[in-house]
Design a protein around this nucleic acid. Structure first.
Length: 505
RNA sequence: GGCGCGUUGGUCAAUCGGCUAAGACGCCUCCCUUUCACGGAGGAAUGACGGGUUCGACUCCCGUACGUGCUACCA
């Protein structure tokens, strides 16, 4: 009998949603969809000191933007509600006490100062370990060293205490990771992690085990940074008597900084000029906004596709995958073990690919906001024509304005840029003459206009190459853009003539 | 420092013992285009190091080096 696949993404609502977080969501989502399973969003808000208002809604907005909506969450609910750990507070204490009763955990009354002192004393040299573990717990103030009466008195007096796991001595803890295979730990080197904090809230270690069990999670994906605490979790599953129901673990490789070393962080994005968060994040406490991929002009499909390939591939060499393809091709066995440095250039390439493969009609709605922002509200027909002309030179959505503004606004062309060293009387005369011809020109199409220009060149001893660039700069304001006569056709007779006049006087 | 995990071009990466080591991004050259881009054709650039195992090792094993993560009453 195989259980129904259930996976979860369990973020802390403390700030922007990191690219690596989105990838974790994505792998969860793909695995759930491929196996007909459920994808749960659980909010791990057990650290009240780090709570940031709005962060939870923000995370859900990000998931929505990415098209990775959970089947169960604090908002949509579900059979295992509540999905916010702060609302599950009472349950954790119950299990923590069960562990204490079994002798697998104990109460610790040590103050911060006492802990610091212990660590200071232990740190006699570079080689010393300063953990709260099987060696040190014997000298601390806890229910292992104190008599039952003393413990009761302290508790009754309202002395703050935490509950720590009692890690066994001389055991080899082995667990199997779906990506890395068997991983072994020496229990003597694992410390007695705090399970329940003095404020009654569980730490991640207790909460993740209790909730994964209660929510019937079958496969747990999380970042590689959790690997060192995996033995604690394994012990908890054992002690709580749930080992048969423990999910299969998959510790995902880290996403690293493009340059230098280390995990990719928000600061690296600021420093290197690219986003790290899925969407803009405004921190209400610091009152500062950090940029997101969405606002930078990424299409969610491209963003998701790019992330899927950062640490996974299907072995075929294919790089562009629709969500359905990702779902059918995704395999945990093909997730890499090693961390990957993030490459923003490649990320942009993905977006460019998506823009190119998106129908112009679809693009209309996607790029319109950028034109509205500049005070223009073109018709769909007009926008469609512009898109057709410029899409192959657009990588991010705002490029459509950068590459197409001159269709709507006359460029601020400095006449001296056109009338440079190569400018001469013949060119001046050509444009003056051509202007009068244009005024009567009936067939305002790019082909006819090009013909008209060519026909009038010879009289002034000019070649086409002599006037193409000047004309382009008059119409566009720079050395870029689609064919000049296409542009002339689109902006119309009056505007074309005005722009030429403006330069030649 | 200890412990865990990792290591194929600058970056992402294929390869599951036969390699003259794919492909993509980026970079360079040329063609196309009297602009820019797209597109096309080329090019430079890779197995960390040392030992094994094997007819044969990028692939397996062991060391070393390097990188990275953890080492909180944060997740």
């Amino acid at each position: 009998m195989s259980k129904k696949v259930r996976v979860r993404f369990a973020p802390s609502p403390t700030g922007g949603l990191h690219l690596g977080g989105v990838r974790t969501v994505l792998y969860n989502y793909l695995f759930a969809r491929a196996n007909g399973g459920d994808f749960v969003l659980r909010i791990e808000d057990t650290d009240q000191t780090r709570f940031v208002p709005g962060a939870e809604e923000y995370i859900m907005d990000c998931l929505k933007w990415c098209g990775l909506n959970p089947d169960e969450s604090p908002v949509v609910g579900g059979p295992y509600a509540p999905y916010r750990q702060s609302e599950r507070k009472a349950m954790y204490r119950e299990y923590a006490m069960q562990l204490v009763g079994q002798g697998n955990a104990y109460l610790a009354f040590d103050t911060t100062e006492e802990l610091e002192e212990m660590r200071r004393e232990l740190k006699v040299d570079e080689h010393s370990s300063v953990q709260y573990d099987h060696r040190t717990r014997k000298r601390m103030r806890n229910s292992l060293t104190l008599s039952a009466d003393e413990v009761n008195d302290l508790v009754n007096a309202g002395t703050p205490y935490v509950i720590r796991i009692k890690v066994p001595e001389n055991q080899t803890i082995v667990f199997t990771d779906m990506i890395r295979g068997n991983i072994t730990f020496d229990s003597n080197l694992v410390d007695d992690k705090v399970l329940l904090k003095a404020d009654g809230m569980p730490t991640y270690h207790l909460a993740v085990v209790v909730d994964d069990y209660l929510m019937k999670i079958t496969h747990a994906f999380r970042g590689e940074e959790w690997l060192p605490s995996a033995p604690v979790h394994l012990l908890l599953w054992e002690y709580l008597g749930w080992i048969a129901d423990m999910p299969q673990w998959a510790h995902l490789p880290l996403i690293l900084k493009p340059d230098g070393n280390g995990k990719l962080s928000k600061r690296d994005g600021d420093r290197l000029g690219f986003p790290v968060f899925a969407m803009n994040w405004h921190d209400p406490n610091k009152n500062e906004t950090t940029g997101g991929f969405r606002e930078m002009g990424f299409m969610p499909q491209a963003f998701v596709n790019m992330l899927a390939l950062l640490g996974w591939n299907d072995g075929s060499g294919q790089e562009i995958f629709s969500m359905d393809e990702l779902i059918s091709r995704f395999q945990i066995s093909r997730i890499h073990k090693g961390g990957a440095k993030f490459d923003f250039e490649k990320a942009k390439w993905f977006n460019n690919q998506y823009i190119q493969q998106t129908a112009d009609e679809t693009l209309v709605a996607l790029v319109r906001p950028y034109f509205l922002e500049k005070g223009h509200n073109p018709s769909d027909a007009m926008l469609l024509k512009v898109i057709a002309l410029i899409k192959d030179r657009c990588t991010l959505l705002p490029d459509f304005w950068a590459q197409g503004s001159f269709f709507f606004e006359a460029p601020e062309t400095d006449p001296t840029v056109v009338k440079d060293a190569k400018w001469n009387e013949n060119k001046q005369m050509f444009f003056e003459t051509w202007l009068t011809k244009l005024n009567e020109h009936a067939d305002w199409t790019d082909i006819a206009l090009e013909q008209s220009a060519t026909d009038n060149l010879a009289a002034f001893g000019l070649k086409k190459g002599d006037i193409m660039l000047p004309l382009r700069i008059m119409l566009v304001g720079g050395k870029f853009g689609p064919g000049v006569f296409h542009i002339a056709e689109l902006i119309g007779k009056e505007e074309t003539m005005n722009r030429i006049k403006k330069v030649i006087g």
